[in-house]
């Protein structure tokens, strides 16, 4: 894929801008981040997007490498997160997609946004509902990942009990409204939707923040 080049007012600040690059001010206006935080995220994005394929776009293998230190390890949940970050569904995460999606993981982001994102994560087949079989599939995947052993009947019991709490209209699947009610009563179910690192992103990547020309 090709790359476009742009430069700021100073030639020494010239930087390569990958396909899908969007101006930090635009992204800051749409997300939980400040302009300097978006710039710091661009430093992170560059690091990830050149880790294997050197094209300035985050591929699934690079996403896995960042999470697991290996590009080979398949993981149902990581692959679901990648799929949802890839808003254009073109197989890569562009910078704007990266920032907009990470914004939902900001500790200060709206709980309703986190709940909506998690709902899409768990709606494996994209039917608009979380079905009992999907939930069972995810519990089994987690058990496989963690080497924990539970009998089939124990898994069924856990899934049935959860559905008995969440499926208030008893139709065997969870709709977005039932899900939102469920997470209000069980906020720990959204624990994976907050990333404390995002509160200190300019501290985590101080080199870029130091050079930023933008005042927030």
């Amino acid at each position: 894929m090709g790359c476009a080049w742009s430069s700021s007012s100073s030639p020494s600040r010239r930087q390569r801008r990958a396909q899908g690059y969007e101006e930090p001010a635009v992204l800051a206006a749409e997300t939980s981040f400040t302009v300097s935080e978006v710039e710091a995220l661009y430093e992170l994005y560059n690091k990830l997007s050149y880790s294997i394929f050197k094209d300035g776009l985050i591929h699934k293998e690079e996403f896995r490498l960042a999470l697991f230190r290996t590009s080979e390890r398949a993981n149902l949940f990581a692959d679901r997160v990648f799929h949802l970050f890839d808003l254009k569904r073109n197989g890569v995460i562009e910078f704007g997609e990266f920032v907009r999606s990470l914004s939902i993981f900001h500790p200060k982001a709206l709980v309703s946004d986190k709940a909506a994102f998690a709902f899409k994560l768990y709606d494996l087949r994209g039917t608009g509902y979380i079905e009992k079989e999907e939930l069972r599939e995810m519990v089994v995947a987690l058990l496989d990942e963690s080497d924990l052993c539970l009998s089939d009947s124990a898994v069924d019991e856990i899934v049935d009990n959860t559905f008995s709490q969440a499926d208030t209209n008893g139709d065997g699947r969870l709709d977005p409204r039932e899900w939102e009610e469920f997470v209000k009563k069980n906020p720990t179910s959204l624990r994976n939707m907050s990333l404390p690192y995002l509160q200190d992103i300019t501290t985590t990547f101080p080199s870029f923040a130091t050079h930023s020309e933008v005042n927030d």
Partner: peptide
């Protein structure tokens, strides 16, 4: 058991994006 299935799956390492922020 009173375990909540969504609490269980939220523990997946696949959701732990903090790896992106750590130097390898």
């Amino acid at each position: 058991t009173n375990l909540n299935a969504f609490d269980i799956i939220s523990l997946s390492s696949g959701f732990d994006l903090s790896g992106m922020f750590e130097d390898k």
